[in-house]
Simulated scan of single mutants.
Amino acid sequence: MLSWKDAKLYVRYENNNIIESVFSNIFWIEFSISNIIKALKSSGIRENGIYISGDFYKWPKVKCYNWTTPNIIEFKVKTFFKSNSSLELTINEEVKAEVEEVIQRNITL
C-alpha cells in the first residue's frame, strides 16, 4: 500500500512529497521487520537473563521467582519505572532441573 501511494505521487509529479514518503516507508518497513524478529524469538531463560514477550530482563532485575504449578514459573522483575511486574513462563519437564540450577546460580534471595 505504501508503494502504491509513492507511485501515485510520482505520477502527479509531487517530487517533494516522494522523498518524504520514501523515508516514511523505510521507517515503517524497519519497524515491522524488528517486530517480526522479536516475535520469532522464543521466550526462555538464558545464562544472562530472561527473555519473555520481546523483552529481556538481566538477572539483577529479577527480584524473585515462584513455581506456581509444576511446569509454570512466575518471576517478579523490576521494570523501568521501578514498579514490580509479574511474568510467567512455561517450562518443559525435561529441562526443569537445568532451569532451576541456572536460576539459583543467578538470583540471590
Rank of each mutant, 00 (worst) to 15 (best):
I107D: 06
K38F: 01
K96T: 03
C64E: 06
S21Y: 13
W67P: 02
I103T: 08
A97Q: 10
S3P: 09
I26C: 01
F56A: 02
I36R: 01
N106V: 04
F23I: 11
T90A: 10
Y13M: 14
K78D: 12
I107N: 06
V95K: 02
E74Q: 09
L89F: 05
I45C: 07
I72K: 01
R105H: 12
I52F: 01
W67T: 01
K78P: 01
F80T: 10
I73M: 03
R46Y: 13
F56D: 04
F23Q: 08
F80L: 08
Y51M: 09
E47F: 07
E30Y: 10
Y51I: 07
N17A: 14
V11Q: 09
D55R: 04
P60M: 00
D6L: 15
Y51A: 03
P70A: 03
E14Y: 11
Y65R: 04
Y51C: 07
R105I: 04
T90K: 10
S85F: 14
N106L: 01
I73A: 05
S24G: 00
N84Y: 13
G44S: 01
I26M: 08
R12D: 13
W4Y: 14
Y65S: 04
E30W: 15
D55I: 00
N16T: 11
S53C: 11
K63R: 09
E14H: 12
V11W: 12
R46E: 07
Y10E: 11
K8N: 11
